[in-house]
Write a protein that binds this DNA or RNA. Structure first.
Length: 696
DNA sequence: AGCACGCCGACT
DNA sequence: GTCGGCGTGCTC
């Protein structure tokens, strides 16, 4: 198994030629160089080298070895930059896989994985090549003679799943465990034990978290035991500090790395375990090039390194859960006890049954808020839409005013003088509000849906004596506002907090006994095959904000779609129900995980130029369709090509649906480079997103 | 990305 | 005949 990496050494045991990816130019090509005799012993996969190229000296990264080359007049490698390679052979293999899977150049992903190094740092913080350290001494080393035990007999008796995890960790082979559940402290206990065990074996661990706050939560807990044995790559880290931490890793001075998505590339050479916390998070997807998903890359790295992988989530991604059945992932459930469930009431309000269609707050929710206020408890009202109102609709003919450039519905906003205005969130175009429908002429046109602003004014009218605060992007003017609104609420000075996703971060729900989800529909109706999954995940997270429940609490969900499987699954807190219904839909409509989607976007300032390039791209894909080496695929969005306006650019988007991604990519790559340089540049850009997390 | 090469039209 | 326009292709 060589994964397309040439490590072949000729019969004299000599590495004669090196395959090199040039790091300073964006060519998707491998160059061959001779390895001078004096460098032979020190060069390896992942070594950075200086090489003559086009009459200049440039740097490259060694990605393979050859005994023979059919290229004539090969030049010599000048020198090796780092004393020990900055990347490990396994990470080189990983980046190769990424460049094929995500259709980006090898150079791009290599440069992304390697911290930006200044020449000066190279001498200052070099790799000292400390010979493999003895694993750090742990308290148990002295006590337990049987080092095969991770969990005690008592613990295993209580939760038999621990035995399975123990076996997998002890086995030290590639195997994925998906832990599903909301019990953070049990999950944490498993992480701790597994890491401890891994270190004891003299191996290393990577822990990924999706956001800065989840990262610091994990780091805080792990630091108690492993402070001197770990590095944390937090959000604000600069290139220099990042490089220093890499050197520590490379020198085996630390054996645990914590970070967000990019930490999946850290160069441990005795990696023994990867943990991906909240694996469902869309933040694992890099939304700029290279557009990889760290969860998928973690899976690939675990496979390449042949080590266990732990994925965990309260609401696993449909892809991962599907893998439980298809690829023999081990699934374990870890949920908090039933006492919690008995004190937590979940109510779904069918808004189609409300008498007044214009009302935002149902009668039941209004009553529940009154009850909370009387009991001196706090209320959080959740809405995932900013602005005043989402769009206008004519109740006579159903017409929705749309932006002529973007074909998206215009948002209804109030300006500072409280004058109504329509704004296109895509391109920023503004339009006047009309009181007559442009299509049928009726006067029954009015705003539908709502934002936090409108909700706030409604609530203020309803509960005149309550302290009400709003927490969303728009309400934050000064940097300090966020902290202040939180502090007021957490000290109990606020009765009702209205907010978007932001309330999930930093709000203390201890004294809250009511969460009202104003409209489950806004997210559910997005034009995205994942909208159901996203709704279920987000609202589950909202409900989980109630961590400790010592008195009765209630969640009220208002929706126009009470029968939707996501809503039903939320009420029953039944992941399996959600998954079964969702996977049926995906299968029926040929969506992931049954196919892959590739999002192709063309952007440019001139409308005609964009259109022309889009047509060229379509013809390239049609040409591919005839290629016997390519895979079958569907092309969406090409027949009635829509040009959108996005900021200053015109934009065209296609979706390719393909089952055999590997085969398709191989054929696609053949002339991709040529097409790119011939038809696209800074003015007319082409972006390709494999397995996108957002459709628009 | 640059830079050479080459094929073509315009010009002292 | 020769200068320079840019489209095409190569760089180990």
């Amino acid at each position: 198994m060589n994964n397309g990496i040439n490590e072949f050494i000729n019969m004299h045991g000599e590495k004669k030629y090196a395959e090199i990816v040039i790091l300073e130019y964006n060519f998707d090509k491998i160059f061959h160089y001779c390895i001078p005799q004096d460098l032979k012993d020190r060069i390896s996969l992942g070594s950075r080298v200086t090489i003559p190229f086009r009459g200049k000296v440039t740097t490259g990264c060694v990605v393979g070895f050859l005994a023979e080359s059919d290229v004539k007049n090969l030049k010599d490698i000048r020198q090796i930059t780092d004393r020990k390679p900055i990347l490990t052979p396994q990470v080189i293999r990983l980046t190769k896989w990424i460049s094929n899977y995500y259709l980006c150049s090898w150079e791009k992903i290599l440069n992304y994985a390697i911290p930006k190094t200044r020449r000066a740092w190279l001498n200052k913080f070099d790799i000292t090549d400390i010979s493999p350290q003895k694993p750090p001494r742990l308290p148990e080393d002295d006590k337990s003679s049987d080092n095969e035990i991770i969990f005690s007999a008592e613990e295993v008796k209580e939760k038999t799943l621990l035995k399975d995890i123990e076996n997998i960790i002890n086995n030290k082979k590639f195997k994925t465990v998906l832990i599903r559940g909301n019990d953070f402290s049990s999950r944490m206990k498993i992480y701790l034990r597994c890491i401890r065990k891994t270190l004891k074996e003299g191996r290393q661990a990577i822990v990924l978290a999706p956001t800065e706050s989840h990262l610091s939560e994990l780091a805080g807990l792990l630091e108690k035991e492993f402070k001197d044995n770990m590095v944390v790559f937090d959000e604000k880290i600069d290139q220099k500090a990042k490089y220093q931490k890499w050197i520590k890793i490379r020198n085996s001075q630390v054996n645990i790395a914590l970070g967000m998505r990019s930490s999946i590339f850290v160069p441990f050479d005795r990696l023994g375990l990867i943990i991906v916390e909240r694996e469902h998070s869309s933040l694992y997807k890099e939304e700029r090039s290279p557009r990889y998903n760290a969860r998928e890359v973690a899976l690939k790295r675990a496979e390449l390194e042949n080590i266990p992988l732990i994925l965990s989530s309260e609401t696993p991604s449909v892809e991962s859960y599907w893998n439980v059945h298809e690829n023999n992932f081990l699934e374990e459930e870890l949920n908090t006890g039933e006492e919690r469930e008995n004190l937590l009431k979940k109510t779904i309000i069918d808004m189609t049954q409300e008498k007044s269609k214009k009302k935002i707050i149902s009668y039941e929710l209004q009553q529940a808020i009154s009850r909370s206020l009387k009991n001196k408890r706090q209320v959080v009202l959740f809405l995932n839409k900013r602005g005043f109102s989402s769009f206008m609709i004519c109740s006579q003919c159903g017409h929705i005013p749309k932006c002529p450039d973007c074909n998206t519905s215009l948002s209804y906003h109030l300006d500072i003088q409280k004058r109504a205005q329509l704004i296109c969130h895509n391109c920023g175009k503004r339009a006047k509000v009309t009181d007559v429908c442009a299509k049928c002429g009726s006067k029954e046109i009015r705003p539908l849906g709502m934002g936090t602003q409108k909700l706030e004014s409604e609530i203020k009218k309803m509960f005149t004596r309550a302290e009400i605060r709003r927490l969303d992007r728009d309400s934050l003017i000064k940097d300090d506002d966020y902290r202040q609104i939180l502090e007021e609420f957490n000290q109990g000075n606020t009765d009702i907090l209205i907010g978007t996703q932001m309330v999930l971060k930093g709000v203390d729900f201890n004294n809250v006994d009511l969460i009202g989800i104003i409209s489950a529909d806004t997210l559910l109706n997005l034009p995205d095959y994942r909208s159901g999954e996203k709704t279920f995940q987000l609202l589950s997270e909202v409900i989980s904000s109630f961590r400790e429940i010592s008195f009765p609490k209630e969640v009220i969900i208002q929706t126009f779609n009470p029968e939707d499987h996501c809503i039903v699954a939320l009420r029953e807190q039944d992941y399996n129900y959600f998954y079964q219904k969702e996977i049926e839909l995906r299968k029926e409509l040929d969506y992931p995980p049954f196919t892959h989607i590739i999002k192709i976007v063309i952007l440019g300032e001139e409308k005609e130029a964009v259109k022309q390039r889009a047509e060229y791209l379509i013809s390239y894909l049609e040409f591919l369709r005839k290629d016997k080496e390519s895979a079958e695929f569907k092309l969406l969005g090409a027949v009635d090509m829509v040009l959108w306006k996005s900021r200053n650019d015109f934009k065209v988007q296609f979706l390719v649906k393909v089952k055999d991604l590997e085969k398709f990519n191989q054929a696609f790559k053949k002339k991709y480079d040529k097409m790119l340089s011939k038809h696209f540049d800074q003015k007319n850009r082409l972006t390709i997103d494999v397995d996108p997390v957002r459709m628009i």
